[in-house]
Design a protein around this nucleic acid. Structure first.
Ligand code: ZN
Length: 276
DNA sequence: CTCGGCGCCTGCACGC
DNA sequence: TGCGTGCAGGCGCCGA
């Protein structure tokens, strides 16, 4: 799923209905998405108030009033859905955890068909230590073209693999890694230490641009992703290469190529993104 | 330490 | 219609 733009969209959608709400009761349907035993997890959250909603990379971060954090990694198919008090419509098909809220505010549902997602409860200290293992926020001030160039030079891995490494930059996944490489006109298979300063500058701009525009479109729904209100994202229509094997390149009309790199699809235009 | 391969789990699209 | 295959946003573990 869910990469940075999807996590950001979900955080924005949860802020209004969830901030200040307290947990009345937690119902665990699938304990395999938790880092604790179901009863322990439920007990630790009972009565807790959600004080702030944010994200780190592609992870949702729900800060509790006692400064603990509930960190949600959505895996491939995770959703965080707000269900209003008189929630109409059909019940969710694959709920994994319900957080029923006090005061008739409805519930927050963690929904996950494949259950690759994980919910972790961190103390303030544990959260800081975990956050420190992640790279800079690509839309934040620490992520500069110079820092990116330095990072690229320090590794011999293919660019697409480098971008998926959350310790390098936090929040880029396979869709936006492929899109950013296309916008920057770099072969996603190129070893990062072969890229020059100009390529690093183009990549820096491309990453920021594609993530910002995807946030504006409320993310990309391939199949499972939904906003906190259950809506689909609109960025899929704007994808240039991801999922478009065989279609003409939007720049030069050459057919887009799909290859497999580290067991995952990579999409590129062989003319606009020539092999190094 | 770095890197790539693989399993985790379910549903869907496609070809025969 | 039914069945087999391939594919999907991520990530942690393992061995080279
Ligand atoms: Zn092209």
């Amino acid at each position: 799923m869910p990469e940075l733009p999807e996590a950001e969209t979900i955080a924005r959608g949860l802020r209004e209905p969830l901030t200040g709400a307290s947990v009345d009761r937690v119902a665990v349907i699938h304990a395999d998405v938790l880092d604790l035993e179901a009863e322990d997890f439920a007990g630790r959250l009972r009565g807790s108030r959600f004080e702030a909603i944010g994200r780190r990379g592609k992870n949702l971060v729900l800060r509790l009033a006692d400064s603990r954090r509930l960190v949600v990694n959505l895996g491939m198919s995770g959703r965080l859905l707000m269900r209003g008090p008189g929630a109409g419509g059909p019940p969710p098909t694959h709920p994994a955890v319900y957080f029923h809220l006090q005061g008739g505010l409805g519930s927050l549902v963690y929904h996950d068909v494949r259950r690759f997602g994980r919910l972790s409860l961190h103390s303030a200290k544990e959260y800081a230590a975990w956050s420190a293992t992640l790279g800079p926020e690509p839309l934040g001030p620490e992520f500069t073209a110079v820092a990116l160039e330095r990072g690229l030079r320090s590794s011999a891995t293919p660019l697409r693999s480098w971008l998926l490494d959350q310790r390098r930059v936090a929040g880029v996944g396979n869709i936006y890694a492929n899109e950013a490489a296309f916008l920057a006109r770099i072969d996603p298979r190129a070893r990062t230490n072969s890229l020059d300063a100009d390529a690093a500058r183009r990549l820096h701009r491309a990453i920021r641009r594609v993530l910002s525009e995807a946030i504006d479109a409320r993310g990309t729904t391939l199949r499972d992703y939904r906003t906190a209100q259950g809506w689909e994202g609109e960025y899929g229509a704007k994808l240039q290469v991801y999922g478009r094997a065989g279609e003409p390149c939007p720049r030069c009309a050459e057919p887009i190529v799909r290859e497999v790199l580290s067991n995952r699809s990579v999409f590129f235009c062989p003319r606009c993104q020539p092999a190094p």
